Simulated scan of single mutants.
Amino acid sequence: MNSVPLMSAPSTSRYTILDRPNFKFGALMGRWESLLVLLLIAVFAINGALLPHFLDLDNLADGTFNFSEKALIALPMALLIICREIDISVAGILALSSVAMGLANTAGWPPESLLFVGVGTGVVCGALNGVLVTHFALPSIVVTIGTVSVFRGLASVVLGDQAFTGYPQLMADWGQGYFFGSLPREFTVLLVFAALFGFMLHATSWGRRIYAIGNNPVAARFSGISVDRYRFMLFVLTGAMAGLAAFLLTGRIGSTRPNIAMGWELEVITMVILGGVSISGGVGTIGGVMLAVLTLGAVTFGLSLANIPGIYMTISVGVLLLVTIALPRLLRGRKVAK
């Protein structure tokens, strides 16, 4: 009997626009990243035409400081959402990590140790989230809504109405410094981690298991994948990256205050969802997330050059998040109705 060749399953990291393979406009445009590229070009063209200093290379380099720390957290957040989980507590972890570094600095710890203090605090916070989600089978959104209040509350209790200042020059060098006089160190760190996360997700068996868990966690468990272990690791990784972001942000602004990184969780999640990561899990790419990061960064940088108040930036980010989540569902509803 002649064997019938089996067709290989489509890669989970390749998908059409709006994650709707049969949607005609999506088939025309190709991938979601294609739309993001066009959107990024449009943002640069409009801002460049309206704002005379927008396309200045030095200004663009300085503009990366506004999103690099958030983007570092968005990378592991993308993996979590692909796995059908979420971490709302990242801004609280960042605040508590910054406070821990402030305490260590006040106690006279060596400057080189502060990075490990920040990342270590993030790991502990992420591990707490991971244990509550995996061991006690609690919904991650409920757990992290609770823990963000705990982490932010602890930071506020320690600080009161005071602030930690007087951080060592080493932190300022990484938070404010440049390589070769023009390439921001923070942005360089972001590019290195984006390449690392992209390789792990798209070129390793570890990444394929992440997609498998997101597509069907029950089937993944029966196929021998330790689903809870992977989820726990991702929560720890997210906490660690929040701790790294705390080190860079604290070095950039030179102080730790109770409201540090307030509201960042919304912007981080917006970066991930706009980047094409499905809120239902199982779909998304690091490349898409980075394109969304650059697009949002260009939008907010343009608004700041135009002296638009920060509250309008917050409103625009919230509207963009709602549109990004709702549009694919609305288009799918139209297709079903036809």
Rank of each mutant, 00 (worst) to 15 (best):
F54C: 10
L294K: 04
M7E: 13
V319C: 14
I210W: 06
I210N: 09
G48F: 08
P10L: 09
T165S: 13
V37W: 04
M1W: 02
G254V: 05
P139L: 03
S3E: 13
L248N: 00
A127L: 13
L322P: 07
I86P: 00
G297D: 06
A163I: 00
L322Q: 09
R257Q: 15
G281F: 04
V317T: 15
S13T: 11
L57N: 09
I88A: 08
I46R: 01
V43A: 14
V218N: 14
V131C: 08
N216W: 03
A220W: 00
R208Q: 13
I325R: 12
A337Y: 13
I82K: 03
L305W: 08
G275Y: 08
D173G: 01
L190T: 09
G126T: 05
V277C: 12
A337H: 12
L114A: 09
Y211N: 06
T238C: 15
S226F: 02
G243W: 01
S140T: 03
A220P: 04
T238N: 15
S205E: 12
L296W: 05
M233T: 10
G281D: 07
R332G: 15
T106D: 11
A45R: 01
P309Y: 10
F193D: 02
N215Y: 05
G120A: 10
S8Y: 06
S97H: 01
W264T: 09
V123F: 11
A78H: 01
L57P: 02
P309I: 09
G254E: 07
G214W: 07
L132R: 01
P309N: 13
F54S: 11
V157K: 05
L36Y: 01
M271F: 13
P328F: 11
G287K: 10
L38C: 12
L72P: 03
L132H: 05
E265G: 09
W174C: 01
A163L: 01
I260R: 03
V158D: 00
G160F: 08
D19H: 15
I82A: 00
G239F: 07
I225P: 04
G181E: 05
T314A: 12
S140R: 02
F180V: 11
A219K: 03
I46D: 02
L303A: 12
F222Y: 15
N59T: 11
G276R: 08
S205G: 14
T270H: 05
V143E: 00
P168D: 07
G214I: 06
I325C: 11
P111M: 04
R231M: 04
V150G: 03
N47D: 10
P139H: 04
P21M: 02
L94D: 05
G122F: 05
L154N: 04
R208M: 11
G263H: 08
F116R: 03
V158E: 07
N22F: 08
A298K: 04
N105Y: 01
N105S: 13
H53S: 14
P10N: 10
I86S: 02
L28F: 14
V131T: 10
F301W: 07
I41K: 03
V157F: 10
V158P: 02
L296A: 09
Q176N: 12
E85A: 02
M101V: 06
